[in-house]
Design a protein around this nucleic acid. Structure first.
Length: 888
DNA sequence: GGTTTGCGA
DNA sequence: TGCATTCGCAAACCA
């Protein structure tokens, strides 16, 4: 007869463990319905492992039936004083049971008994019936059930780590046999189940006593042999308690369980239900695992069929006119759409899809006409990416109405994956695979050679765009974000696209000259450092540097990192006073940074044909609504120190006699704060055109009208202003400006007294985040803050700071976006040659013929400061010169 | 791939 | 008690 293997799982205990093991990731584990899924996910991870290891023929998951059991009848306070189960956890239990049903595993609960007792009873039956049994739980107490044919597997801190208790292992680990565990608990009691044992007996003494006498009963039979006076007293005193505790700890082996082991046959996964369940939970990992394990013909299981027509030069003319609009998707593997190979495309609507690998078809009628027509509404995924890529084919995309990526991001900034399949899933749509599933990842990533696989994927993507459009538009409407989408973000995509395509000219020769100078300097400093250290080492390695400074040279350790000594700027500056090597390392670092990141980094990305760099602005990435810039990042070109700033000399206009023109908002975030908070005092300072940091200094330092605001005082006030915007703590502020924590607290308190509207604003935002779960900018950009109710202090505090900061930073982002859209229109309307090239958060950079500078100097600030009507004026400053360096 | 460092608003 | 100012990108090192 084949071996019979039984898997018994303590459902409550394992779900609990899984929940807390993945607690820090709670925010990441929510499905599109808002359900938390971390415990379900963790449970399934454990289950996969156990199914793999045990290969059960029979299985059951036992749950607790309710709070009251025969144990609470024996002892009122059993499991008393436990904190209420978090709602994020309780909501998951029904789904764990649903999961188990789909996996072909029975569940069972029994009124008045705990899951333990069900397991104990069935394990005994199984023993009699000749099963090999594996029990899975997070609770060590169950190790009392370990015997020759029964192993107890305890999931440790994570759910993936599992410890297997055989009787021998119990003995080794706990010092007693499995049967004696109840005696240990009788003596020791159980804090978490809230019952006492014998006073003064902890784990060590309990093991000693049980080891010597075998059981509680035998201890009392030989009580006179116990010489330790106090111990004997306690034992006698708590005799009843010890017996009760032992009883409580004893798992029932004869509970009235209505199941027979033979009936617990493990039937295996019900593929359809399991696929549907995984889809609903957004468990993509498990889904793709199924497709590998199973024999499903498509890459992802559960996909509906789709048909398509391959477009060729011959049937091109038969394409419909798509008067009511169409979906369009252009495929590229690489991120960088300025350079990526165009792999193919799909177009169509209403379940008629045309596909091809040959993108040159797009350059012919009727496709080109269609794409360029503003009359034909196009629905896409990532309008900017599509626009730039088409531009490379000489096609200027127009008429985009729906952008799945962009609208998804506006609805929830977390739903911003560049993978269409992933985004679709976030919205509960599962009829399209992810790119990773179809194209693979890492070195194996490739467009499939198999036409059918590739074309079906393209068609499904295009269909997903069509299917999701009504739902996302409805969402935008409900969130009052239609205007944000139509008037800001969608037009912004095309403005950015044109800026990216325009690019900015960078003079390689200038960078190369700087580079050779830096190389020389670095070699020189390097030698000095080696001399000071007495040996050669890698200065760029924090590990080696730490060894030299703090071990070899014995300098004082100021700060530590997770992995060793910190050698950050602040630390080295403190060391500089006593060790000249620190000064040299600082200088080395500064130059090495400029050299590697900016000189060499920029040289790598200058386009050989047009001598320009073409960044990509990520429009759907940040949580606040700001843009970010990559490949290269043009939003962090040095400016604060002179050596770094020199990099900007390489950024020049595309024609020799043109200029670089730049305008930036002055104090935009504080102005937004003054507006949103309606704070009278802060508004007054801005209306009167005061220096806001000086004005703040006067207030928080209670200075008289004639007292002079020194640079140092102003610097401190400036730090407080920034701190307020970022939601600072007294500790943070004290660190930042080198004052005591008490002083810092004083500053903040005074600040809030002087600007009471600001105080009320911060409280209002935190309050709103608690009530609604999100905060908003002026243009209704929304950021959800799931951690705002976290019991974890850090997470909650972070969410609270974010609640204050996001509306400010995000509204500033709204404003400059509006300005950019109007700016492009104004340049066109005035028929200027000037071109908008860059955005650096509060600054716009243009190139223009010298003769247009005068016009720009009026036009740009006027467009920027009128972008929005605030309770206080916006202020814009402009500069220009032959290079970006000179536009200051 | 994670950590440390440093550049910007 | 803890922890300790927001949003980003890129390079080098190291496992």
């Amino acid at each position: 007869m084949a071996e019979k293997r039984l898997l018994l799982i303590d459902g409550n205990s394992v779900t609990f463990k899984a929940f807390f093991a993945l607690y820090t990731a709670l925010g990441k584990f929510t499905n599109s319905e808002g359900l938390h899924t971390n415990a379900i996910y963790g449970f399934n991870t454990m289950l996969e492992t156990m199914l793999d290891v045990v290969k059960p023929t029979h299985a059951l998951v036992a749950f607790d039936a309710g709070k009251t059991t025969f144990r609470t009848k024996m002892y009122d306070n059993y499991k008393g004083g436990r904190a209420k189960t978090a709602p994020e956890l309780s909501e998951q239990f029904p789904y764990v049971k649903e999961l188990l049903a789909a996996r072909g595993i029975q569940t069972y609960e029994l009124p008045d008994f705990e899951a333990d007792d069900i397991i104990g009873t069935l394990a005994r039956q199984a023993e009699e019936d000749g099963f090999t049994t594996t029990i899975v739980t997070g609770d060590r107490d169950l190790t009392q059930l370990a015997d020759e044919h029964t192993t107890v597997s305890i999931s440790k801190k994570g759910v993936s780590e599992i410890e297997h208790y055989t009787p021998a292992y119990v003995k080794e680990k706990m010092g007693v046999t499995p049967e004696q565990i109840i005696d240990i608990k009788g003596l020791q009691g159980d804090n978490s189940d809230n019952y006492p044992g014998v006073a003064g007996v902890g784990p060590k003494r309990a093991v000693d006593l049980v080891g010597k006498y075998g059981s509680i009963e035998n201890i009392y039979d030989h009580i006179d042999e116990i010489t330790a006076k106090k111990l004997k007293e306690h034992l006698l005193e708590d005799h009843d308690q010890a017996l009760l505790a032992k009883q409580l700890a004893t798992i029932k082996r004869d509970a009235p369980v209505a199941k027979r082991v033979e009936d617990l046959v493990y039937t295996g996964d019900d593929t359809d239900s399991l696929v549907a369940f995984y889809q609903r939970m957004n468990f993509n990992q498990f889904l793709s695992k199924m497709s590998i394990d199973g024999e499903a013909p498509t890459a992802t299981p559960g996909l509906e069929e789709i048909t398509y027509t391959v477009l060729t030069a011959d049937n091109l003319q038969k394409l419909p006119a798509f008067e009511s609009g169409c979906e369009f998707y252009l495929e590229m593997l690489a991120d960088n759409y300025h350079l990526a190979d165009l792999a193919g495309f799909a177009i169509g609507n209403e379940d008629h899809w045309w596909v091809s690998r040959d993108v040159s078809l797009l350059q012919q009628a009727p496709l080109k006409t269609l794409l360029e027509s503003s009359k034909v509404a196009k629905q896409v995924f990532d309008a900017k990416r599509t626009y730039v890529a088409l531009q490379r084919l000489g096609i200027t995309l127009a008429g985009v109405d729906f952008d799945l990526l962009l609208s998804s991001y506006l609805l929830n900034t977390y739903d911003n994956s560049n993978d269409l399949g992933r985004v679709a899933m976030e919205h509960g749509y599962h009829q399209v695979a992810t790119d990773e599933d179809v194209y693979g990842k890492g070195a194996k990533e490739a467009i499939p050679d198999d036409d059918d696989v590739f074309f079906k994927h393209l068609a499904r993507k295009t269909r997903a765009i069509e299917q999701l459009r009504p739902q996302l538009f409805k969402g935008l409407e409900e969130n009052e974000q239609t205007k944000l989408y139509r008037e800001i973000e969608l037009p912004m995509a095309f403005v950015l696209a044109r800026m990216e395509v325009a690019g900015i000219t960078v003079q390689a020769s200038e960078l190369e000259a700087m580079g050779s100078k830096f190389t020389e300097q670095l070699a020189e400093i390097e030698q000095t450092i080696y001399n000071e250290a007495g040996e050669e080492f890698n200065i760029g390695s924090p590990k080696q540097l730490g060894h030299i400074l703090f071990e070899k040279m014995g300098l004082p350790v100021i700060k530590k990192t997770k992995t060793g000594y910190s050698t950050a700027v602040g630390v080295l500056e403190k060391l500089a006073a006593e060790a000249p090597i620190a000064e040299n390392i600082l200088r080395y670092r500064k130059i090495a940074k400029i050299q590697s990141t900016y000189v060499e980094g920029l040289l790598k990305v200058i386009h050989p044909d047009d001598h320009k760099v073409h960044t990509r602005y990520l429009q759907t990435l940040t949580q606040t609504g700001r843009l970010s810039s990559v490949d290269p990042n043009l939003q962090n070109i040095p400016v604060r120190n002179e050596e770094g700033r020199a990099i900007r000399k390489a950024f020049v206009p595309r024609h020799p006699d043109w200029e670089i023109f730049s305008s930036d908002y002055s104090q935009i975030e504080l102005r937004v704060l003054a507006h949103m908070s309606h704070d009278a005092n802060m508004q007054e300072a801005f209306r009167e055109g005061q220096d806001i940091h000086a004005a703040t200094a006067r207030r928080i330092f209670k200075m008289g009208p004639d007292e002079e605001v020194t640079p140092n005082i102003r610097r401190q006030a400036k730090a407080v202003n920034f701190g307020i915007v970022y939601g600072i703590s007294d500790f943070g502020l004290s660190q930042n400006i080198g004052i005591s924590r008490k002083q810092a607290k004083n500053f903040i308190d005074t600040y809030f007294e002087e600007y009471p509207g600001v105080k009320a604003y911060t409280e209002r935002m935190v309050q709103q985040a608690h009530e609604l779960g999100y905060v908003e900018t002026i243009a209704h950009r929304r950021r959800y803050l799931p951690d705002i109710n976290s019991r974890n202090f850090n997470q909650r505090s972070f969410a609270e700071r974010t609640a204050m900061n996001t509306p400010i930073q995000g509204s500033a982002a709204d404003i400059i976006k509006i300005a950019m859209i109007r700016m492009e229109a104004a340049l066109k309307e005035k028929k200027l040659q000037a071109t908008m090239l860059l955005q650096v958060h509060d600054e716009l950079i243009f190139e223009a013929p010298a003769e247009e500078i005068e016009t720009l100097a009026k036009l740009v600030p006027s467009v920027m400061d009128s972008a929005i009507d605030l309770e206080i004026p916006l202020k814009v400053e402009s500069h220009y010169g032959p290079t970006w360096y000179d536009a200051k």
